[in-house]
Write a protein that binds this DNA or RNA. Structure first.
Lengths: 208, 208
DNA sequence: AAAAATGTTGACCGATCGTGCAGAAATCAT
DNA sequence: ATGATTTCTGCACGATCGGTCAACATTTTT
């Protein structure tokens, strides 16, 4: 009897299959949501049978939960890399760059988290007020220090971070709307344009 | 036999019941999403039986579709009110104010549209590239004129509008995250703080 | 008051979906 | 090769949900 459950990391085959299921699940969940997707859709996208998917995970909810957890660290990595010893404006602009890149290259992850938080984050409820809050508080303190040192214009660091999240992730989460409004031709350069715009905005705003 | 269907607007009672269902549906749909909510949840929230809800509408999808449509005009009203003859900075800051107010007072509507667009906007697919694009293009042209006249710093008007959408709606759509990160005490003033922050940012950015 | 229209409910059906389970099939260890 | 372990599938159960229909109740109209 095989238990390909939560804690057991076993053979290479298991890892590959689990990864294939993760990949398929990310595709379907980010597009249809948790309740909107069926196990068979995930299974088909992964090239497996429905029961076989259940064999590697123990159910739909577990796939979703583990998927979310496995993406969390990668998702907050850019903020984690914000370096107190770097040049303030450079650090923030680099952060914006990475966030725009993530909206461009990882829109499914962005939409997955967006949907989850939008619906009350029942599966992230513990990590938000602890881990994420701690991380944001830490980085906000760094930014506050920069402002106190006169290297940046004084603004609320928390809301600054929120605004960067909002503006950058907007281009992943609301991509349909962005493309509809911009039209086909202008949509082609939307990420470059967005990055330039957001950076311009932050430079003007944060210049002491 | 009564047909309380799409086009028929009849008695006062019908209007009231339909409105009660709309109100209940907005509650549940914005929290659980379309596929995540059952007819009985809507019915219970409206104080009616499931079959009775079907009597006034013709199904779950129709409630959702009509609800979305009925909220659309109200949702884009602030942008529609952006006045070419007003003072440029005032007009934009007023727009921000109204958008923040909507995030505070109409978070369910915000989340409803956010979820819909996030999932590809299958029920708005026609109106986005036509009506919304026309509206945004019109207002972007106005802003562009202001910039050309030297009344505002030159920036891409479309992305300026996107950034305002993103920053303001963020406080409704991701409220759970915002409150988790800010903590209980700072959460109390999150909307006032956000409005002040966004306005400061835009003043610094748009000042010629 | 009678009749007609409107409103409401109980019973139920068909479809879908998640999940469990026995056993077949394939792979691996010895 | 043979037995053990892992991988996969066929079958089917139970639950949920959207929607139907007929009957019943209420309100409105004449």
């Amino acid at each position: 009897m095989a238990r390909a459950g939560t804690t057991a990391r076993k053979t290479r085959n298991q890892m590959e299959k689990r990864q294939a299921i993760f990949e398929a699940a990310l595709d379907v969940f980010s597009e249809k949501g948790l309740r909107g997707t069926t196990l068979e859709q995930v299974a088909k996208a992964a090239g497996l049978s429905k029961q076989n998917v259940v064999y590697y995970f123990n159910g739909k909810d577990q796939i979703y939960a583990e998927l979310l957890e496995s993406l969390l660290e990668k998702w907050v990595q850019p903020l984690h890399d914000l370096n107190a010893d770097g040049d303030p404006m450079d650090e923030i602009l680099t952060y914006v760059s990475r966030k725009v890149q993530m909206s461009r290259n990882m829109p499914r992850e962005s939409r997955l988290f967006a949907t989850e938080i939008l619906h009350g984050a029942p599966r992230l409820g513990e990590v938000l007020p602890t881990d994420l809050k701690a991380l944001v508080d830490e980085k906000a303190a760094i930014i506050q220090d920069w402002m106190d040192a006169g290297k940046l214009a004084p603004l609320d660091p928390h809301h600054l971070i929120f605004s960067i999240w909002a503006m950058t992730q907007h281009y992943a989460d609301f991509d349909v709307q962005v493309r509809s409004v911009l039209g086909p031709e202008r949509s082609a350069t939307r990420f470059e344009d967005a990055e330039r715009f957001i950076k311009d905005m932050l430079i003007r705003t944060l210049r002491p």
